[in-house]
Amino acid sequence: MKRIADILAPVALILALLAIWEIAVRALAVPSYVLPPPSAVAEALAGDWKSLIASAWNTLAMALQALIVASLLAQLAALGAALSPALHRALRPLAVVLQVTPVIAIAPLVNIWAGIDHPERAIVALAAVVAFFPIFSGAVTGLRSADPDLERLFDLYGANRRQRLLRLRLPSALPFLLEGQKVAAGLAIVGAVVAEFVAGSGSAQGLAWRILDASHRLQTARMLAALLALGLLGAALYALFEALERAGLKWWRGR
């Protein structure tokens, strides 16, 4: 019974808010290019669902490619930093500069490097830039997170560097690696959308293009429908990575 109530309460609230929105927009005669009623958004969703799913897929594909690239580079860099303190000192400021520079500011540059005809490359690169830091930072922290007493045990039993890395530091880092992937997955979607706004869409139009297109035509209901699709996509990806993290931690801890 309690579970049903848990689900019913938020659904009821959302329905109530939608009803108020619908009634208010109609009663006040708000122009639909400013704020369309929810029924119009639902209509736009029903009419556009095929192209929205195609666009969501494009955005997701870009974000996932970026995530793979960022994951490989960031974890390799973190591994290098763990093995060589000099490399760590060298990488740290670069990683921080990369992180604090707004992705929108470097987009035009990356756009030129990727080639005007290949905006999808620019999008993947830019989303990867955004996703890099949380993975790198998590991996660096994780690789230093081994229990100091376990480190002492490895000293005591004369472990070599390889044993220490493979049997202590890497396994100790796993929870941090999973957390980094999860945070980066959400950021990769943000990066892909922002990059598409700046770099354009090429042949594969993502959700950013749907939003821009609707905005240029003052089709606010379609804009809201695309935004809704974007929100759902982000939430679904986050939920997926959270489930992966939980499963990974369960395996790591044994319960």
Binding site: D149, L153, P171, S172
Partner: peptide, 13 residues
């Protein structure tokens, strides 16, 4: 030489 620490200090994985 073997050491036992204050906490069990086992690898959780």
């Amino acid at each position: 030489t073997a050491v036992v620490f204050q906490s069990p200090t086992l690898a959780p994985w």
